[in-house]
């Protein structure tokens, strides 16, 4: 069970009306004088089409409400064990629902909303791709886990011995689970390592940083600077010809 006091820690008690509805969270909050919108998944959600559409719908409502006014920052909560696995979801095109969420995040960005993701609990594979990873800035909360697949399953699929993967995982961040690995590769902007800090102030600073990079994807460059991803930036620039 995910911890609902999270929002008190982030915004201060009584300064938010974030509602938890099963695996869906949403609601308004304030950081100082700034109103923000909170939208996301909750309690290790297996993201299915209904949850994806709930998130997308909420983004669209925020964008519409702020049309002609100052666009509120959007704080996404990513708390997901991955995509839902079911034949019906595949048949109805769960990938299409995720693409729709991504478009909505992009619309929010283009409409001037700062976007920031907080990884709470775990962020896995497709469930993370859909919206969490698309924000301008991503923060991993303490004990947050990020992964595609655990090493045991990876060993089964790739037929590489587990011990070997475990050894290599110590030297390379490219395949092993871990928020720190994603930080080294540039996909997590900041790791919040303790629960003791002034989270409202830290969140305010992160949102300011998100505004700074809005519209640019700086992850590959950051990953290169942090030594976690050496080639992505170089190769992309070679092909882009810029």
């Amino acid at each position: 069970m995910s911890d609902p006091t999270l929002f008190d820690a982030l915004f201060g008690a009584g300064r938010h009306e974030v509602a938890i509805d099963g695996h869906f969270v949403a609601g308004p909050a304030r950081l100082g004088d700034t109103p923000v919108a909170v939208i996301g998944s909750w309690d290790a959600a297996a993201v299915d089409g209904d949850l994806a559409l709930a998130i997308a719908g909420e983004i669209l409502r925020v964008v519409e409400a702020d049309t002609g006014a100052a666009p509120r920052p959007i704080v996404f909560i990513a708390d997901t064990q991955g995509q839902a696995l079911s034949r019906r979801e595949e048949l109805l095109g769960l990938n299409g629902c995720f693409a729709h969420v991504a478009r909505c995040v992009d619309l929010a960005r283009r409409s001037g909303h700062a976007t920031l993701t907080l990884i709470h609990g775990e962020a896995v594979s497709g469930g993370f791709l859909a919206f969490g990873m698309l924000a301008d800035r991503v923060v991993a909360l303490p004990d947050a886990q990020v992964r595609v697949m655990d090493l045991r399953a990876m060993s089964r699929v790739t037929k590489i011995e587990l011990e070997r993967l475990q050894t290599l995982a110590k030297a390379s961040p490219v395949f092993a689970p871990g928020a720190d690995n994603y930080w080294r590769m540039g996909a997590v902007s900041t790791l919040w390592e303790s629960t003791g800090g002034d989270w409202p102030a830290m969140l305010t600073a992160e949102l300011a940083a998100a505004r700074q990079v809005a519209g640019q994807d700086v992850r590959a460059r950051t990953g290169a600077e942090r030594g976690g991803r050496g080639l992505a930036d170089i190769v992309a620039r070679e092909v882009a010809g810029a």
């Binding site: 594979s125 790739t158 395949f175 092993a176 690995n181 996909a187 991803r229 992505a232």
Partner: peptide
């Protein structure tokens, strides 16, 4: 989808492709 031998790099790369595509 993602190449498991470099799963994290692959997942991030796809996210980057999504943003670049849009």
């Amino acid at each position: 989808g993602v190449r498991l031998h470099e799963a994290n790099a692959g997942l991030i790369a796809i996210s980057e492709i999504m943003r670049a595509l849009m």
